[in-house]
Simulated assay, not measured.
Amino acid sequence: MAEDRRQQRPSRGGSSAGRGSSSGSGRSGSSSSGRGGASRSSGDARGRGSRDSAPRGGGSSRGGYQGGDKRSGGGKDRAFRGRSEEKARTADQAAYDGPDLPEGVTGAELDRGVRAQLKGLPEKLAARVARHLAAAGMFIDDDPELAYQHALAARARASRIAVVREAAGETAYAAGHYAEALAELRAAKRMNGATDYLPIMADCHRALGNPEQAIKLAKSPSVANFASEAKAEMTLVEAGARRDMGQLDAALRTLELAPLTSKSRSSWVVRLRYAYADTLEEAGRDSDALAWFHRTHAIDSDELTDAAARADLIERRQT
C-alpha cells in the first residue's frame, strides 16, 4: 500500500529527491501494496460503514425522573436530570468516535484482501472499521494527520487485525509521528510476518535519532528478496543513516552498490541518483556531483527533484 505513495512524500531534510533521500532525514516507504493499509488508490483505500456501539460517557441521556432512594428515606437528592447535563466526551472516547466520515465512502473502495481481513468482525463493526480505513486512504497525501485520526478510530475498534495496525502505522509515519508508526508497524509485523514494512521502520529509527538501528534493519536477510523499488528505499535509508553518523564514504559505497546506471526511468532510480549526487557534493567532490545531477535530471521527466537547479549552482561556483 505504501508503494503508490513513496514518490509523493516530501523529505524531512528538505531534499526534493523525495522521502528517503540520504540527504537529511528522508522518509522511506515499504512495499506493502496489495495487502491494504492506508493507500490513496481506489483499489486500496479503506472504507465501508454502518453503526456500531461506541463507549458513552457522562450522565443519563434519557433524562426524566430518576426517582428517590426509598431505602435511605429521601428522594430530594435524586432529582430530575436532563440531557444538558451529559458529560463531555473524554479523549479516548473522542478518538474512538474518530473524525466525521466522508459522504460517499461505502466500502467499495477497499481492496478485496482488506475486506477479507475484516470478515471476522461483526458485520456492522466491520463496516465502520472499513469506512475509517477508506477515509485514511483518501486523506493520507493531502491531510496525513486527518488520515491518522481515521486510522486510530479503526484501530480502537479492531486492534487485533494486521491491516488495521498497518494503516495506523503508515498514516502515523506520513503525519510525522515516528514513534507511533514504529510501534504500529511492529505490531502488524508480529501479526502477519510481513517484512516489507522494514524500510519504513528503519526510517522511523533514523527520524528518532537511532541510525544504528536503521542500519541493522537494512542488513536484514529478507531485504535480498525485496523488489527493486523496495530495495532502493532501504538503500536510501541506509545511506541516510550513514550520513547521519558522519560516514560519508560508507554512504557513498552503499549507494554505489545500487543500480545507479539502470536504464529505467522509474522514480526510485531518479531518487537513487539524486541521493548519490547530493552525497558526492557533501563529500566535496563537486565535479562528480555535477555529472550525477545532470544524469538525474536526464531521467527526471516528472521533476521529482531539483537536480537541474543543483547542477546550475555547482556550475556557477566553478566559473
Rank of each mutant, 00 (worst) to 15 (best):
Q7G: 11
D4F: 14
G73C: 15
A232G: 14
D100Y: 03
Y148P: 00
A2S: 14
T279K: 02
L121F: 05
T235K: 01
H294T: 12
E166H: 10
A95I: 08
M245W: 09
G98Q: 05
A79L: 08
D300E: 09
S25K: 06
A241N: 08
L257F: 04
L272C: 06
A289E: 02
R310L: 00
L146G: 07
A94Y: 00
A230Y: 00
G68L: 07
S53P: 01
V223P: 09
A162Q: 05
Q149L: 10
G193P: 08
E256P: 02
E123Q: 14
G246D: 05
L110I: 11
W292Q: 02
T254S: 13
P10D: 07
S287A: 15
E229V: 14
T279N: 02
A230H: 02
A241Q: 07
S84L: 11
Y197S: 01
L185S: 04
E282C: 02
T90V: 12
T296V: 01
A308D: 08
E166D: 12
R316W: 04
E86Q: 11
S50E: 09
P259S: 01
S60W: 01
M245D: 01
A227P: 04
G193A: 13
E3A: 07
P199I: 02
A258E: 03
S23L: 10
A207Q: 15
S28F: 08
R6G: 14
G59F: 07
A94Q: 12
G98A: 06
R48I: 07
H205W: 07
R6D: 06
R273L: 04
D302C: 01
P122A: 11
T171A: 10
T195V: 15
I299G: 10
K219A: 15
A224R: 13
T296D: 03
A127I: 03
G284M: 05
R112K: 11
K219P: 02
Q318H: 06
E256L: 04
S72W: 08
E315R: 12
A289S: 05
R9Q: 11
E229T: 15
H294V: 13
F80L: 12
N225Q: 15
A258K: 01
E238F: 04
S84F: 04
A38W: 02
S15G: 04
D300S: 05
F226V: 11
G176M: 10
R160E: 14
Q213D: 06
R310A: 01
I299T: 11
E85S: 12
D69T: 06
A309Q: 15
S25P: 04
S287Y: 03
S15T: 00
L304A: 03
D249K: 10
R56W: 08
F226P: 05
G107S: 04
Q7H: 14
L152C: 06
A168Q: 09
M1T: 12
S25Q: 08
P55Y: 09
T305I: 11
V105D: 03
S222Q: 15
R115N: 09
E109M: 07
D69L: 09
R243S: 03
R71E: 14
G49M: 10
M191A: 11
Y276Q: 02
C204Q: 00
A194H: 07
E212L: 07
G29V: 14
M245P: 04
S287P: 00
R19Y: 06
R46T: 13
H150N: 07
R253F: 00
R81D: 07
R310I: 00
L110F: 05
Y274G: 10
D196W: 10
A181W: 08
R131S: 14
S39P: 00
L290W: 02
L152M: 13
